[in-house]
């Protein structure tokens, strides 16, 4: 990553608050408190945090889905999201190919006659066979659905992908292949990915940089390798200590 690499997303002093309390005494409950970061082309940035840390809210704010109370979000190009459970984000009644073609039609990215060919190309790009084009989401395995979610996102030709716990529900053997796919998309297409997760092991494999969130604020940020090697904030250290890879068997008392 050089300084000349274009920045696709700049978030400056972002504040998000959700309304809370009874209707006669509504107040704003701050969820994100002054978060700043950027994401450059061809870079995977991890947003790490426990439940309630504000990581998903930041993702939603970038996608325009959360009430930004202050701050600035500057985005170059399109952004697309992929989610943990593709079954709830894919239309269960619509064939896989048609869902991808719908995106092509909405964004006018392929002429009517060329949509099918492009949908098949996208399915193959994410490692699926062309004959999945006519299937319904329910007929697919979890890993195949995750890939369809990615293909559908890619159909909009985004420069930034936001992945919110996108591999959390997958079995490890399937997760490994989906992580490989995300790394391929970064390397081959220069796609930038904002990867939201609570899984530190995945961050370590996938992310070039990472931000650690706690109570809506960034407590630490940096290159992934450096962050794991020498966490400087107490919370990061606690998070790393709590995470046990399968191989660290002998620490147990």
């Amino acid at each position: 990553m050089t300084d000349a690499t274009p920045t696709l997303l700049t978030v400056e002093d972002l504040h998000v608050a959700y309304p809370a309390g009874p209707f006669w005494a509504r107040r704003a409950r701050p969820v994100v408190r002054g978060v700043s970061f950027d994401v450059r082309e061809g870079e995977i940035v991890g947003l790490i945090g426990e439940s309630g840390s504000g990581k998903s809210t930041i993702a939603r704010a970038v996608a325009g889905l959360a009430p930004v109370t202050a701050g600035r979000i500057a985005l170059t190009g399109r952004v697309q999201m992929i989610f943990q459970d593709p079954l709830s984000s894919l239309d269960p009644m619509m064939r896989v190919g048609a869902q991808i073609e719908e995106v092509l039609a909405i964004h006018r990215l392929a002429p009517r006659g060329g949509r099918r060919a492009r949908a098949v190309e996208l399915l193959e790009r994410v490692g699926l066979s062309a004959d999945l084009h006519g299937r319904l989401p329910a007929a697919l395995s979890g890993g195949q659905r995750a890939r369809v979610g990615i293909a559908r996102a890619l159909a909009a030709e985004p420069r930034l992908l936001i992945a919110d716990e996108a591999t959390a529900a997958l079995d490890v053997s399937v997760q490994a292949l989906v992580l490989n796919l995300l790394m391929d998309l970064r390397d081959d297409l220069g796609l930038a990915i904002l990867f939201i997760t609570h899984d530190l092991a995945v961050v370590r494999i996938l992310c070039d940089r990472a931000l650690v969130l706690h109570h809506g604020a960034v407590v630490e940020a940096g290159e992934t390798a450096a962050l794991f090697a020498a966490p400087s904030h107490d919370y990061t250290r606690a998070l790393l200590a709590a995470h046990h890879p399968a191989r660290r068997l002998h620490d147990r008392t």
Binding site: V172, S173, L179, D199, V202, R204, I205, P245, A246
Partner: peptide, 12 residues
């Protein structure tokens, strides 16, 4: 295969 699929830097 399962163990080799774990997101562990040693498995890359």
């Amino acid at each position: 295969g399962l163990i080799a699929s774990l997101p562990d830097p040693a498995a890359l």
